[in-house]
Amino acid sequence: MEHVELFFKSIFIDNMVFATFLGMCSYLAVSKKVSTAVGLGAAVIFVLAVTVPMNWLLDQYVLRPGALEWLGPEYADYDLSFLSFILFIATIATMVQLVEIVVEKFAPSLYTSLGIFLPLIAVNCAILGGSLFMQSRDIATFGLAFNYGISSGIGWFLAILAIAAIREKIRYSNVPAPLRGLGITFIITGLMAIGFMSFGGMLTGGNDTDEDATKKLTTPQGEVSVQDDADEPIAEVKTTNNK
């Protein structure tokens, strides 16, 4: 259930393009044709699906405070989180370069259709954004991180597919000359983003949302109902106060 929820949430509610406005540059620049958009979108899904879980492992076992504990208790105090940006970026750039080499070698036909987009992906902020969100939202398990990578990639894919299709059609419309191309794309994206905001209602609307949010924050850490056992120790404090 957790997986299904995260999956749909990442695609629709937290859509990379329309909700968080990440990966806009390549989204606007490479959406003239549906075929190229599909190529780039597929590449983004793939790279996100690989880098988010990889960075999850990095974060969990190297970067976060106390993550190095597996090396021995004396390492538990290290906090390498100031390195997270640089290591995430390094993973992403390395992965992109690796994927480029592997695809070129084993699937030349895919490489020709995808090849030129791969270097573009390294600078796509949606990719780094994916890893940083994974870190800041405390995605709990490796499986969820993988799920998060794939589903946010799919969200990005859907967005670029949609705008490319609209841009192919809009060629037949009478757009004012100065707005043609980039201008109208900006405005359409704005309108699409407003449309996507209605998905936000799935997350924020209704009366019991706050309760749900509270539950989510508390349940992983155990129940909050310790009131009954609390009497004794508190008496202790009272005595210390009296002293």
Binding site: I184, T185, F186, I187, T189, G190, L191, A193
Partner: peptide, 9 residues
């Protein structure tokens, strides 16, 4: 944010 897109447009 969508309005920023439209303003840039």
């Amino acid at each position: 944010s969508p309005m920023a897109l439209i303003v840039v447009g």
